[in-house]
Design a protein around this nucleic acid. Structure first.
Lengths: 206, 206
DNA sequence: TGATGATTTGAACACTGTCAAGTTTAGTGA
DNA sequence: TCACTAAACTTGACAGTGTTCAAATCATCA
């Protein structure tokens, strides 16, 4: 149970923007040590602030983690959207590449930040039922791209109703299994092939 | 930070089978409180044993959790196999039902024991690479059933190579997303429909 | 019986989350 | 300029945590 000392001395009594500083410092530590193993005291000491300072912004540790989760969900969506800009246009080819890119962005994010991925989907941030996450930004991106696949004639419309559930579940599942070591990394592209086959996405020879 | 007191007085100095007692007691607590939040001291006190007794069998808390993970993986496989006995025979109908049952067993297990599911797939038990989990008991059951689907002519053999990755990923992903509240429970049967469609499993009207 | 080796304990250490009460500060209105 | 106030942060404490290690206990076999 060793911990590195990283006390930071600040000049003013008031920190300025402690709330967001807490979040980003906590993210940094979670990246290194995992979502379990986050220490509020370590976060505080990183910021040169007393251990109880955080309690002015978060009722407890759990809600800080929850806040981080929400932050990460929007960040992932932004990141996905950005990576779709690489393939603009309404052509069948571009649309197919965008579809694949959604999955790859998801995968790359998780591979680069496995501990943040675990935080998002490991039961640390409980979602309020009823709403589910159907209205997530990420989910909307997926919906839109699936619609476009149908629109440009690449995906048959009778398979469209299964689009969201099949794509999200299989990609998410594969990513999870891969980063936990249950499947090799090479499985991911294989899954994308299978998914496109499943959704009837037509292939041209490359 | 409240904890229930459940001290157990035992008669003999030696416990007898402390190792397995530690595991099953820890499982009980994890079911209630989640994999993070497991307290070694609470486990010990439940068994009426000193906090340091566990260290004779496990080098640290992490390896106890790891041991539990391995135990759960085999238990899930046994449970799956058992539930397949409900649909014996080589008929197309029975084989299809078995295939669906694998997914349902997975889902039911996770819904009944979300915290154990989180322990298994939330990064608490790291798998030694290279091996992956390809040689898991659960995986073998899936492989066998997919082969049988082809054998009885229900699934086209050109889709067979995608069987494992598609089935395991999508089922696992859906289960994970559902128990974390990102998808409604009703999504699961929808996913199974989509999966069978994807793998070309023929439907007769029911 | 005595000795040996496997189990378990006790006490200590350095951590942790959390909270009530106190202290500092920035910002207001007079 | 000054007092006042509400917000931001600290102090000090409490209970609970994982972990270590010497000492105590027990079961077993020579």
């Amino acid at each position: 149970m060793f911990m590195s000392v990283a006390k930071v001395v600040r000049n003013s009594y008031h920190h300025g923007n402690l709330k967001s500083a807490l979040i980003s410092s906590a993210i940094k530590l979670i990246r290194k040590n995992g979502p379990y193993n986050l220490s509020l005291r370590e976060v505080s000491s990183e910021l040169g602030v007393s251990p109880s300072a955080a309690y002015h912004y978060f009722p407890d540790k759990e809600s800080l983690v929850h806040g981080i989760g929400e932050y990460l969900f929007t960040e992932l969506a932004v990141l996905t959207e950005k990576s779709l800009e690489k393939f603009p246009g309404k052509s069948a080819r571009a649309t197919k590449l965008r579809f694949r890119e959604i999955g790859r962005a998801y995968f790359n994010w998780a591979r680069k930040e496995p501990n943040l991925f675990r935080l998002m989907f490991g039961g640390f941030c409980s979602i309020d039922r009823e709403k589910s996450h159907i209205d997530d930004a990420s989910f909307k991106i997926l919906e839109k791209t699936l619609d476009e696949l149908v629109a440009c004639g690449v995906m048959p419309s009778n398979l469209r109703p299964f689009g969201e559930i099949m794509a999200w579940s299989s990609v998410h599942g594969a990513v999870n299994l891969i980063i936990e070591g249950h499947l090799p990394e090479s499985s991911f592209e294989e899954l994308l092939d299978g998914l496109e086959l499943a959704l009837g996405v037509k292939h041209e020879r490359s």
